[in-house]
Nucleic acid binder design. Sequence first.
RNA 1: GGAGAGAUGGCCGAGUGGUCGAAGGCGGCGGUCUUGAAAACCGUUAGGCGAAAGCCUCGGGGGUUCGAAUCCCUCUCUCUCCGCCA
Length: 430
Amino acid sequence: MLSGLLAPKELDKLAPTLPAVLSDALKKSDERQAAISGGDASLEAAHRAHRAMVDALGEARKGDLQAFVRSQLGKLLKEFSTHLKDAEGSLKDIEAKAAERALWIPNMPHESVPVGADASGNVEVRRSGEPPVYSFTPKNHWEIAEALGIIDFERAAKISGARFVANVGLGARLERALLNFMLDLHVRDHGYTEIFPPFIVNTESMTGTGQFPKFADDQFKIEGLEMHLVPTAEVPITNLHRDEILPGEALPVAYVAYSACFRKEAGAAGKDTRGLMRLHQFNKVELVNFTAPEQSYDALERLTASAEEVLKRLGLPYRVVELCTGDLGFAAAKTYDIELWFPAQEVYREVSSCSNYEDFQARRASIRFREGEKVKPRLVHTLNGSGLAVGRTLAAILENYQQPDGTVRVPEALVPAMGVEVIRPPGAPA
RNA sequence: GGAGAGAUGGCCGAGUGGUCGAAGGCGGCGGUCUUGAAAACCGUUAGGCGAAAGCCUCGGGGGUUCGAAUCCCUCUCUCUCCGCCA
């Protein structure tokens, strides 16, 4: 893994966008190449010479040479191979350091991405559904959930801490219904293959998708082990094909996976402290694609549409926003955020982030494909997007489907799984 | 958790210090033969860097040696037996 990070051509391409220190180092890739395989003084030439001598000694080993000659040759070779190993060693060190640094270089935005400094530069692409009009003041989802007794914030804080919740009764059932609804939709109607992944992954996987090393502080690590709770199913699913060469005809590969997601939310102190918007543990259904480079932008549109379809069928108002360069994530080349309408605060909030990573993750995780017999393997493009975050979707349902009497209507698509059409407070007549 | 055995090319499998990037088989691809196919026979069939020559890679890392797939250490993973367990 990671060897591809050093591909000189790619690094040269990146050089102009990098800090001076790095780009200087990269400009020397020609010199580096020359030192390795250039002329008579190169490392390869030394290997060649060494091997020839070793072979010659081996040839002579059984007899004809005088012991004296052999011992002299042996001494010379000893010295030679010591120097050779030193040279190899320093090259390895240098390359390891370069690879280490390369892990901190973000992806480059696609040329279609709007330029902007921060979230204010994002561009709304489309809207679907109308925000409902209320004859009363709509409540926040946590107020509704508490009144209905379907989410227990206090006891969750007791048993785990802040930013944890426990769903109760129809609240638990709604979580499960949503989850199944999303998975079924993507499997049946969108042709995805369902994966149920591990929720704990190793450090290589975290590095492969780009969480490490830069975002290590936001991940839960298992004490004493190089293992981490997944922040999203993207990590185990994308790494499914780490260090693999996929047959060209297998592409595009499309996986959908449920996982619990664990995030420290370090640096989010004070933000979204109430409700379901920002938790240390939440449920999410994730869509992941592996495609040929030529297909990845079409795939991004399809993937985003698949995620949107969930909201359409649930009758929730949303908009799609294209992130500008300043708001784009570390690993993404292009991202569409899908934002749900939350009537109590009268804002759109993110419920899905659909990104094309191009070959950023493929390079880190060494995920390639081969189109024909004699063709060299090429890096795939990877994409993923939430399809969707379950907790936030549940929150949006509570707010958008709330009624004056405090009850919440169940979206039609979920009625079969819920077994009721309306969620009522405990003890209320049906 | 304890005891032991392993990890070799797409797969199976030989190789226990020297010319081995690696026998043989299977599978794949190409060809001969055939009306066509099968069988048989011949050839071919890993990855990285490189324009090429070539160099590197036998799970990962380190060591011994003039020389390591082969010996030593370590890590990871797999299997068998015991223990434990949903």
